[in-house]
C-alpha cells in the first residue's frame, strides 16, 4: 500500500468513526485540530490495525500529533509485518 492509499484509508476510517467528512484531510493536519481526541485517535488506529492486519504497540502511540506522524507509524508497522 503506497502513501496516498494509506491517507485514503485514514480519511475513510475517520469518516466512518466520526460520521463527518474527512476527505479534505492532508498529512499536515494536526489530529486534535480535526476534532479527534486522543481516544478517537486510538479508535482510528485500532480500525487501521484491523484492516491492515498490523499491531501497533501502545507506547508507540504516545506523542503522535499529526496525520503524517500517524501514517509514518502505520507504514512502519505495515512494512514490519510484510
Amino acid at each position: 500500500m503506497d502513501r496516498s492509499e494509506l491517507l485514503n484509508t485514514f480519511q475513510r476510517m475517520a469518516t466512518e468513526i466520526a460520521e463527518k467528512d474527512f476527505s479534505h484531510v492532508t498529512e499536515e493536519h494536526v489530529i486534535a485540530d480535526l476534532g479527534i481526541d486522543s481516544l478517537g485517535m486510538l479508535e482510528l488506529v485500532g480500525s487501521m490495525e484491523r484492516e491492515l492486519k498490523i499491531a501497533v504497540p501502545d507506547e508507540q502511540l504516545v506523542g503522535i500529533q499529526t496525520v503524517r506522524q500517524l501514517l509514518d507509524l502505520v507504514e512502519k508497522r505495515t512494512r514490519a509485518s510484510a
Binding site: 486534535a32 481526541d37 486522543s38 481516544l39 486510538l42 479508535e43 488506529v45 485500532g46 480500525s47 490495525e49 484491523r50 501502545d58 507506547e59 502511540l61 504516545v62 506523542g63
Partner: peptide, 24 residues
C-alpha cells in the same frame, strides 16, 4: 494528553485485561 494515555488509560486497560482492539 500523552500523560493521560501513558499513565492512566493504558495502565487501567492493562490491569483490567482489556485490549484496545476489543474496545474498537
Amino acid at each position: 494528553r500523552d500523560v493521560f494515555l501513558q499513565k492512566i488509560y493504558f495502565p487501567v486497560l492493562k490491569y483490567l485485561g482489556v485490549t484496545r482492539q476489543e474496545l474498537v
